[in-house]
Each structure stands twice: as C-alpha cells, then as structure tokens.
C-alpha cells in the first residue's frame, strides 16, 4: 500500500500544485486584498493598510462602477433571455428530424471557436459599418432608407449592437448544452406521444421541457460564469476609456488596477480585488438561487 501511496502522490502532485498556485492561493489572497488599501498591485503585504469594508463602500458609491454593474446586469439578463431561448429553439429544430443536422450544428457552433477579438472586429467593421456594412446594405436593398441610415455604433445604439453581436457568438455553445440534454431523452417517449396524437409543440411542452430542467440549470450557470468575465467585447466596442455605454466591472477593475487611461485618480488594487469578490458572490448567488428555484425531480430517463 505504501508503494501505491507514493505513486498516487507522484501522479497527483503536479496538477494539485498548479491548482494551488493558480487558483487556491490567489483566491484567498484576492479575498484578503479586498479589505485593504493597496497603493500598488505589486506592493508587499507590509504596505497594505487594513480598511475593513471601505473598498466595498467606495465601489457601491462610485457612479462608474454602478454603471458597469448595471451594464453587466443588462448583458446577463437580456442577453440570457436571447441566448437561452434562441439556442433552445435551434436545438429543438436540430433534433426534430431535419436533414444535414451535423452540418447545421457545426456551422452554428462555428463562431465560438473564432477569437473574440476577430469576431468582434467582423461585427464592428463590417456588419455595423455605416459605409459598407451588412445592415446598411440590407436595409438599402429592401428600401428602408431610414433604417439604412442608422448609425449602429452611436451612443444610442451601441449597447444593443454590442449585445446582439455577443449573443450571436454565444448561442452555439448553449445550443450544444441543450442538445446534449435533448438527445438523452429516449425517442420512445416522443414516439408514444406521436401515436397518441401530440404535435411537435405539444411534445416539446409536455416531454422535452420538464425533462430539461437540469440542463436549464447548467445553461444558466455557464451563462453567468461567462457573463461575469465579459471583457474583450466591451474593450473593442468602447471608443473612449470608461465608455459608459459599454463599461463592465472587469474593464473597470482593469482600469483601476492596471491604470489604463486617465480616468483613475487614485490607484488602489484593493478596489480591484473587491470587484472580483463582488462578481464571485454574484455567481454564487445565481448558482444557489437556480438550485433552489429549479428543483430537479430526479426523473428517470
């Protein structure tokens, strides 16, 4: 047994050490940092000044941070509705027995493997371009001159433009999660329902929907985890630093700690850490709430 033990430790050690170095220790330290005033990220612990909850208080009362949280909430909430419903719709269509299913599935997932920077650039420089953009060309072609003249990236439209482009890129991933759930449901159930005269929408409502509760939870969790890390899209869509239309907490934290732009008057890494902790708490709250609200009935299928 002793020999086995050595073997187990030897095999586990590298991965566990990586986990401790990259996750466990930093998480604990970020949590600590959020209670201190820290002038420079690289400052040692001896330079930290304990200030209790004042970082959190400062954040809550900072208008830019409030805006960033509000933007993130809108992305999470409206984006979540768009992404989860469209991805479910596509998943249901793909499993309804249409031809070329694998091809469609592959193309719909395709945007997810493209670098977010490249994808966002395609949207910004092509789809939303006011000179040669897809939307402008399309609206001109069907004769809607006023829609064609819309400046999709001005401050009145920018947030919605950002949300739409982001959602397009995310739908494929969530569709795959839905698919994995739907494909686990036995086809016998649908067949029986079909024989009993249930049409497709009825089959969806009475068979697929109740059996997908667990998958729905997975989807919400994954959506929340990726939403919280919203960063690249915001950076690409903002033309000025601290663009109130597109700023999200992670961009705020980046400005705050790594000092991009002149909007930051005082550097305090403790504030940045507090942003991280707040986002983490959001994820945990959402996770607990969905677990409470959506009870899996442990249906056998």
């Amino acid at each position: 047994m002793n020999k086995n033990r050595k073997f187990i430790i030897g095999f586990l050690a590298p991965a566990v050490i990586m986990f401790i170095l990259v996750f466990l220790y930093p998480i604990i330290r970020t949590l600590m940092m959020s209670f201190f005033k820290i002038d420079s990220v690289t400052g040692g612990i001896e330079t930290w000044k304990f200030e209790g909850l004042s970082n959190y208080q400062a954040l809550i009362t900072t208008p830019v941070f409030q805006t960033s949280m509000w933007n993130l909430f809108r992305i999470w909430f409206f984006g979540g509705i768009i992404v989860l419903s469209f991805s479910l719709l596509l998943a249901v269509i793909l499993t309804s027995g249409i031809r070329f299913k694998k091809f469609f599935r592959a193309v719909i997932y395709l945007p997810n493997i493209v670098s977010a920077v490249a994808l966002a650039t395609m949207w910004l420089q092509y789809v939303y371009s006011s000179k040669f953009g897809l939307l402008t060309t399309f609206f001109n072609a069907i004769g809607l001159k006023s829609a064609a003249a819309t400046q999709w990236l001005d401050s009145g439209h920018k947030f919605r433009a950002l949300l739409l482009a982001y959602c397009f890129g995310m739908i494929g991933y969530h569709m795959l999660i839905w698919l994995s759930g739907i494909e686990r449901i036995s086809p016998d159930l649908f067949e029986a329902a079909h024989i009993d005269g249930a049409n497709k929408p009825q089959q969806f409502w009475y068979i697929t929907r109740p059996l997908l509760k667990g998958i729905f939870k997975t989807n919400i969790t994954m959506w929340s985890v990726t939403s919280v890390a919203f960063f690249v899209w915001s950076q690409l869509f903002s033309t000025v630093t601290a663009d109130t239309q597109t700023i999200v907490p992670m961009v705020y934290m980046y400005m705050q700690t790594f000092g991009a732009g002149n909007t930051v008057t005082e550097r305090n890494a403790g504030l940045g850490a507090a942003v991280g902790v707040i986002l983490c708490i959001c994820v945990i709250v959402i996770f607990t709430l969905t677990n409470r609200l959506i009870k899996e009935d442990d249906l056998e299928f």
């Binding site: 586990l12 566990v16 986990f19 990259v22 996750f23 466990l24 220790y25 930093p26 998480i27 330290r29 970020t30 940092m33 990220v41 690289t42 400052g43 969790t221 985890v225 919280v228 890390a229 907490p249 992670m250 934290m253 700690t257 890494a269 940045g272 850490a273 942003v275 991280g276 902790v277 986002l279 983490c280 994820v283 996770f287």
Partner: peptide, 25 residues
C-alpha cells in the same frame, strides 16, 4: 480534489489575476 477542480472551472479570472500579477512581478 475533484470538487475543487470542478469549482475552479467556475471561478472568474478576475478573482485570481491580481495576486498572480503581484507575485510574478
């Protein structure tokens, strides 16, 4: 260990990046 690894998949990078930067710098 397995539970820790699974939870790590849900940890936002923002939660680990500051200490990493500080130590590495």
């Amino acid at each position: 260990i397995q539970t820790s690894f699974v939870s790590a998949m849900g940890v936002p990078v923002i939660m680990v990046v500051l200490p990493l930067f500080s130590v590495i710098a």
